[in-house]
Design a protein around this nucleic acid. Sequence first.
DNA 1: ACCTGAACACCGTTCAAGT
DNA 2: ACCTGAACACCGTTCAAGT
Lengths: 192, 192
Amino acid sequence: MALTRDHVVATAVELLRRYGLADLSMRRLARELEVQPGAIYWHVASKQELLVEVAAALLAELPGVREEVPQSEALAGLVELATAVRAALAPVPDAADVVGMAYAAERGSVTALRELRGLVGRAGVPADACDAVTDLLVHHILGSVALEQNERLAQAGDAGGAGRDGAEVARSFAVGLEVIVRGLVAARVITS
Amino acid sequence: MALTRDHVVATAVELLRRYGLADLSMRRLARELEVQPGAIYWHVASKQELLVEVAAALLAELPGVREEVPQSEALAGLVELATAVRAALAPVPDAADVVGMAYAAERGSVTALRELRGLVGRAGVPADACDAVTDLLVHHILGSVALEQNERLAQAGDAGGAGRDGAEVARSFAVGLEVIVRGLVAARVITS
DNA sequence: ACCTGAACACCGTTCAAGT
DNA sequence: ACCTGAACACCGTTCAAGT
């Protein structure tokens, strides 16, 4: 079967899910595809470009946001989407690094995060504060994902550790999200 | 002059400041110290351990927080400290990655961030929410630092770009910080 | 105690040459 | 158009042997 860009990206995603970012090298990927390392560079310009595609793929399955969301539901939709993004990334090793890098390189490269920004706008955040608020939300999501994965590793270390488990990290995330949403109103970023 | 752990760390910091994380390899560091790569491993167990030391060193110069801060001043002190940390890291290439990695590996490894957590507690955040709120603040700081450095790179790319400059990123950071602080009260995390 | 020399097992990327 | 083979310039880490 001939190599295609989609196949390269899909295999990279699988490698990430199974073994993490450290084992997602261009050479390892080539071995998985039963091809020489140089062959990959016909379909993808660089590892950086590949990782941006991987990040997009990780969040491509999320149900899209309805086009027309009334302002009254925008904040709730925002909380829902942020929670869904966190849940989708949490089980993927090093997902926070991969998505964080893609978002830093090009904010529009990940659909779900573009939709998040749209909801921020529709919730009433003025245009000149949209980026700041979206960044705050994205960093909260990715920080929480990274944290949960770290707890998992630490817990695997000490056998019966009293470390915070996934559910507890998810609760902390919800608290932080609530703080942000309430803060938007209290700081008069949203005048409602 | 005999190599010491402090000298190794200080040289690593200098390398990071001047050339960024990509050029801070154990081998490059050894060359800078005029020593064989293996020699570094007598003073430091691994690159990971070295980077944790580097992260601590980057924020070691910050003025410490007074021990006894009344609750009425804790929130203001928190904003001040967060702003100072951001300002200290902003000019250091890849500082967000280095400090983020150290914070993820061991939350107590960076003094200034430990002090931030102390202020969160003294501001009235209950013990079981301290970590969540501190994480939110730390990720906001590091996210903003990473963003500003990205803007700088993007601006260096297109000559007279309309990209957001450092001052604008700093303003966005302040907005986010205000949202968080107000949100703490509005979400009744702090009952004041 | 502290360092050298040399090795082990890897990287990302490029590119002439083949099919 | 798509891929191989082979090279270039690197990595982090280990460890016997030297001083």
